[in-house]
Design a binder for these strands. Structure first.
Lengths: 344, 344
DNA sequence: TTTAGCACTCTATGCCTCAGAGTGCTAAAT
DNA sequence: ATTTAGCACTCTGAGGCATAGAGTGCTAAA
């Protein structure tokens, strides 16, 4: 960690960041000296800024331009200088309105709404990772016969996740047989997380059950299949077009790269998962992100929980020039709402 | 319908369209006379082109430029001149591979895959409307109790559509009571399309049932709710970034408008539904589209069916400068595959 | 009816200039 | 020892201008 700056340098750095976030233009010494009434002439500021540049907090796009913050500059700002802005009343209202638990029983809907709210309150793109099915605990399983040849498997987890899948049943099963198998499975699997339902466990059960009821090969294959399939998780996006409003994305090529990224759910998932610090809000600025395509961006993430168990991650993605205080404020609030909503 | 052109004019129009589709540059008389070896000098072509312009099939972007087709020109081309290209072997392979029915029991997956294939084979954005739940016929309904206070309603249609929803049950119901209600409902609703399950019908049933079993207010509200909710349908997109490859979309503002459109499912749904001619493939060029935001685009749509019953619509959206023959060829093929896959 | 030839038009490109913004340095002021 | 005023210097971006190139329309000859 670089040494701390003296207060005057801090004030100047802060002024540059704030100004640059608003205008997207390099900030000159004159502007700082004027707008932030710190009673110093532009010449003095110039000297300080030269220092800040030497220490790596600021850069000039070219010799005769103002300064813009480096990633290090943003980092310092976030760690030491940032004011957490609270929500505006409008935002507050919009948030609580669209997340009122009233009409939203389905978790998908809550998540989707959250993505919308988050993106519109921050003017950035938002990503939300749904509950991680495979980390939920098995609650119970049902098989509904649909007709002679098909059945519907319904899998329910402790977090209220419901997964269903139509299966073919080669051999016809009587109600009684079916019931027998299902209740055996329920008994054995209860309380395990989906992650723990490994192939080997399934095989074991299969052997077990095989002795008692030979017909059920098929049912197991299906259970396996339905679990495998869930390896990748849905990531919900909101406000993907917001990124087009940022002047740093006026280049069609950059836009293409970002949108391409947005189309690849597994990648998004990986990006979000990498940041999960299990606790609180994480800010990744520029190259602090692993994925190459977002190294000009900042990703801010938080996690939401149900009864203290981490369910998923919410994120905001935008250019490094972003209103950190505001975004973090909004995200705090959103995570709180989510935690409350989901725990009831 | 405008009068038909003589053969020479047709050849020239065709040459201009084909050339322009490839190069995206205005086509000059010299180019036509050379590349399409029709044994005429550029001067002659020039005269004919002037005629074609007067008749509204071609335009010049400026006085000293080549010509590009107007919407009328494209229309004439599609109606009278177009060669339907068959698929390349590669495309063919990709198509049959990714749509092999093997691993895809879920309809969502089939649709999703189709969207991907369609967009990558055409290099355009594809839109696919999933099966219209509300036009499916009611098959049967189950209610699974989850715990004391919650149940899972499962609704199954004749087209294999499965819709489930968790409901709260204020009053506890015994298994027997539940069973009674459910079987009554099944009997009454069987065979109706979801559209036909109107609020008034539900009310009627409610009265009916009320006499016999007072507790079930709640269950009905839930059925109603779950139906209402399905009014809007999912539209699956593929290759949204393809649109960025088109030179006509190098303007960030246009891009924003398109992407914005893509984010609004209900609008997309409306656009797709408007074109449903119930039969065969429909081409809407430019202003032939109702929606203002796609009047510089061409939308080509087709419908897929299961047992002769129209399920949904697939579409390809791109600039009016598009390889009509190829897109239509691919779409034909895809629709055939879909029809076959779904009917088995 | 077709074509060669030519004058004309329009765009896109590169080059130049110049104003404006902002800097760094030096010397004076506090 | 700081701070500030003043000044020369640098770099960008916008505007103006000339030019090459592509393509046309028209006229007159084939």
């Amino acid at each position: 960690m670089a040494a701390l700056l003296n207060e005057r340098k801090e004030q100047i750095l802060k002024a540059v960041v704030i100004n640059y976030v608003i205008t997207a233009e390099p900030v000159g010494s004159r502007t700082v000296s004027r707008s932030h009434r710190m009673g110093l002439s532009s010449a003095t500021i110039r000297n300080e800024m030269a220092d800040l540049e030497e220490q790596g907090f600021l850069v000039q796009p070219h010799t005769s331009a103002g300064r813009i913050p480096t990633q290090l500059g943003y980092r310092y700002y976030v760690d030491n200088l940032m004011d957490l802005s609270d929500l505006s009343d409008d935002d507050e209202l919009a948030l609580s309105n669209s997340l009122s638990t009233e009409k939203m029983r389905e978790i998908e809907q809550i998540i989707n709404n959250s993505a919308r709210v988050l993106s519109s309150a921050t003017n950035q793109t938002s990503l939300i990772m749904g509950p991680q099915f495979r980390k939920s605990a098995f609650h119970h399983l049902r098989i509904l016969p649909l007709d002679e040849k098909r059945g519907l498997v319904v899998l329910i987890t402790d977090t209220g996740f419901i997964k269903n899948k139509v299966i073919d049943m080669q051999q016809q099963l009587s109600q009684a047989e079916l019931h027998q198998v299902v209740s055996y499975l329920n008994q054995k699997l209860y309380g395990l997380t989906i992650d723990q339902v490994t192939t080997s466990l399934i095989n074991e059960l299969k052997r077990d059950l095989f002795k008692r009821l030979e017909i059920l090969e098929q049912a197991f294959i299906l259970l396996e299949e339905s679990l495998k399939e869930e390896k990748q998780i849905r990531v919900f996006l909101g406000g993907t077009t917001n990124i087009l409003n940022q002047p740093e994305f006026k280049d069609v090529d950059k836009i293409r790269r970002m949108l391409n990224l947005f189309e690849q759910e597994p990648l998004l998932f990986k990006i979000l998962e990498d940041t999960s610090s299990e606790d609180n809000i994480v800010v990744r600025i520029g190259a602090e992100n692993e994925h190459a395509d977002i190294q000009e961006c900042t990703l801010i993430t938080g996690t939401y929980k149900i009864h203290d168990k981490t369910l998923g991650t919410v994120g905001v993605l935008g250019p490094t020039r972003m209103d950190y205080g505001h975004v973090i404020g909004v995200m705090r609030r959103l995570v709180n709402y989510l935690n409350k909503s989901l725990s009831s």
